[in-house]
Design a protein around this nucleic acid. Structure first.
Lengths: 337, 337
DNA sequence: TTTTAGCACTTAATAGTTGACAGTGCTAAA
DNA sequence: TTTAGCACTGTCAACTATTAAGTGCTAAAA
């Protein structure tokens, strides 16, 4: 592509990211001090539109970037724009090591969300490739017990159990023993299924097996399910694109139902790019998603995401997300096993 | 108040709850088959307005209920209107006892929220009046440990700990021992403070006391902090009052920041009533809150809440919330100590 | 004394009109 | 290849009816 066109495209994207208004040839010329006449710019804009990088909101309006335009921008024109304010906020909140990993992830997401006015979330760390090491029972009193699940990576999860009259501590112990002897080494993902297959054995050895079976199945299912966190989403309402109620509803429902994440996985092919630094950008309808992953050990990977209108400050978001990912790896990634 | 006026007031509130539109005298007469002329109704409306039960949106508009009107309605005119659909959904989800209390609360809130299109939340069960019984350490490996906190009511909470190189398991053990010997019987509420006062003792006995101190303080603070759950809030956007963006922003921000709950506590005096059945209704600006409490034992109380526009179906909401509270008490309340 | 019919008046909501404005595409000249 | 000039287009805001729903008040009827 001709150099002048690239300059114009970049100027339009930058300007639109800032103002959220369509941009005309004359405005562009004066505001960016371009050494071309408005007519020349107009011609290039027309051509850029034909190539699919720009769009118009109506026949005689200025131009806005299309998804293809954003994609080109993100692939070729992004700068490294790490926002110092956010970094300071993150550092002072997280890097004193006071939190455990999950708390740190939540804190980070909240900060990013707050300071960018976009929805921020985290998925994982993923327990899919972990195996159950053993479970440990902790009786509290006649009715209550805590069970600790420990995986081969040292990841733990706990679950409170509460039993009705006819379940004895002995029963629970037996149940734990059975699980430990038969499910050790099972992938977390496969736990619910494998446990279901063990039902007959429980029936043989335990009096109120039904109760216990349900409780443990529930715990296993929860353990295997994705560990998803979302920051508050009201911030996103400050974005000018969400002055339309229908759009708000659509986005909010999408976020609430976690559809974004699902469609994301299934949609890998369409409209997505991976930056040189490893972040992934993706566009679904008018929504853009920026995703960076962090890895606390060879088996546990987590993902950070920012969701918002396609008009977002990609340079800034990518930089900050990668900063968070690095920070989490640095503090929580080393020497975990 | 004269009987006819009460009939008219009830009809207006019922109609407005259904349609969300101001109601005129003629509409009311025909739709509710009232045996009075529109002029008579008009006179009564005027009088009801003077008494503060009704409002107009503009000089020549129909009437809508004022907060005082809703209040009167809730105090005197509510019917018991338990929605069968919701009950069925709740029963099939919860009453098989598969969940632990917190999961059951969350499930219930989600169901209520989904089926009423209002925001539903739960606070607690409250640990304010519980005392620390003891804590129990569980080393996983050199770097990780789980600590279980147990209160005198049998309530437990767990926290994952992760330590850097220079903290030994021995240190953690010492720390736990100190806590157990010195903090047993302390109100959960006072734990952070009391623990802070113990800092010098830790300094004496533990090498990297700073790290451990921070980690435990964090855990105590979290333990003592309110246990708040909120259903998804996007449902509420279906309410016609939230077709105005400013209102959405205001409400969403309020919900996200949990301002509702705080203002609620501080605002006990103004605009609130308690029904015969023990639910509490409260109005703040254009927002109504319905609150029912449930009690799992003599020390632990929790609260269920529904938040929405003041035009909500109070009869239905109160009935369903009380149903949930009863259900939780029935399943989780008995024989816990 | 209470209720009602009748009427003048008010407001919101809707649709149509107008002019300013920001922008475009195209043509012809530089 | 670039640019000046110009006709044209859609949006937006302000203004003007017009209509529909509803009110308050007065005087007559019950």
């Amino acid at each position: 592509m001709k150099n002048r066109k690239i300059t114009i495209l970049k100027a339009i994207v930058d300007e639109f990211i800032e103002t959220a208004e369509p941009i005309g040839s004359k405005t562009l010329m004066t505001k960016y001090n371009l050494p071309y006449s408005s007519a020349t710019i107009r011609n290039d804009m027309q051509s850029l539109e034909e190539m699919g990088y720009l769009e118009k909101t109506h026949v005689s309006s200025g131009r806005i970037p299309s998804t293809k335009g954003y994609k080109f921008y993100c692939e070729n024109l992004m700068e490294d724009k790490l926002d110092n304010q956010i970094v300071v906020a993150l550092k002072s909140a997280i890097s004193n090591g006071r939190y455990d990993l999950n708390d740190a992830i939540q804190q980070s997401c909240d900060i990013v969300s707050e300071m960018t006015n976009l929805a921020t979330g985290a998925l994982g760390p993923d327990s899919r490739y972990q195996k159950l090491e053993h479970i440990k029972l902790f009786p509290i009193d006649e009715r209550n017990a805590v069970v600790i699940f420990i995986t081969n990576t040292g990841h733990t999860e706990t679950k409170n159990f509460r039993f009705s009259e006819d379940v004895s501590v002995k029963d629970i112990e037996t149940c734990c023993d059975i699980i430990n002897s038969r499910l050790k080494g099972t992938l977390v993902d496969e736990l619910p299924e494998k446990f279901e297959a063990m039902k007959p054995i429980l029936e043989q050895k335990i009096y109120s097996h039904e109760m216990l079976y349900k409780a443990f199945l529930n715990a296993f299912t929860k353990f295997a399910s994705e560990n998803l966190y979302y920051s508050k989403t009201s911030n996103i309402l400050h974005q000018p694109e969400y002055s339309d109620i229908e759009k708000i509803k659509q986005l909010m429902t999408m976020l609430d139902n976690n559809t974004v994440w699902r469609r994301l996985e299934s949609n890998e092919n369409t409209n997505s790019i991976t930056t040189a630094t490893g972040s992934k950008l993706q566009w679904i309808d008018d929504v853009a998603i920026v995703k960076s992953s962090f890895r606390v050990n060879e088996l546990e990977e987590g993902q950070l995401m920012v969701v918002g209108p396609s008009r977002m400050d990609y340079s800034k978001i990518v930089a900050v997300l990668e900063y968070v990912a690095d920070m989490l790896e640095r503090i929580y990634g080393q020497g975990r096993k």
